[in-house]
């Protein structure tokens, strides 16, 4: 009990209010989530109060979202990912329903060219699983170990394109992605 109260006092001693922009943004975000989760039927005041408490308790060092993220590029990126997901699903469905399972399966190591920060690499590792025919097996250093369900010459280009799209989302400079089958 004494230890707990000491911890709480220590935490309160270190606590400092987040900058007002972050506080406002977080409160709006959490209130929006409350509204969605309660299907618009929950009390607005309880939602805002809860959102404010959570926003105040969140550590200042944790960013609400990365500062370098280009928000205006997000709709286009989501569209690109939806198109890729649909293509991937059709490819898997075609293989699954074909009379004979014919696949050129192999593993491949993809080295990052543009993404150097772990959160960016983790995002790519997750999105690789939604793109046609590829599955992340492991992230090691600056490389992804990938399982390819049915290898074709476009796979390497497809991965480079995905990386350059993510780099664009983070505002990283990149050259044009060339298609080399």
């Amino acid at each position: 009990m004494l230890l707990r109260s000491k911890r709480l006092t220590g935490w309160l001693g270190r606590w400092q209010p987040p900058p007002w922009q972050a506080l406002l943004l977080r409160t709006l975000l959490y209130s929006g989530l409350w509204w969605v989760l309660t299907e618009g039927k929950g009390s607005l005041w309880i939602g805002v109060a809860l959102a404010l408490v959570i926003a105040l308790c969140a550590p200042v060092s944790v960013a609400t979202w990365p500062r370098q993220l280009r928000w205006w590029k997000l709709p286009l990126f989501i569209g690109f990912m939806l198109k890729s997901s649909l293509k991937g699903a059709l490819e898997v469905a075609k293989l699954a329903i074909s009379q004979r399972y014919h696949a050129n399966t192999l593993t491949h190591t993809y080295c990052f060219r543009l993404l150097k920060q772990p959160p960016q690499q983790l995002l790519m590792a997750n999105l690789v699983n939604l793109t046609p025919g590829t599955l992340t097996l492991r992230i090691r250093g600056d490389a992804l170990y990938i399982h390819i369900l049915h290898h074709h010459p476009h796979v390497e280009y497809q991965l480079k394109l995905l990386e350059s799209r993510i780099a664009g989302l983070y505002g990283l400079t990149h050259g044009p992605t060339e298609y080399q089958p």
Binding site: S85, G88, A89, V92, N129, P132
Partner: peptide, 9 residues
């Protein structure tokens, strides 16, 4: 692959 792609779509 089947679970992450076709299922999600």
């Amino acid at each position: 692959h089947a679970l992450t792609k076709a299922d999600n779509v």
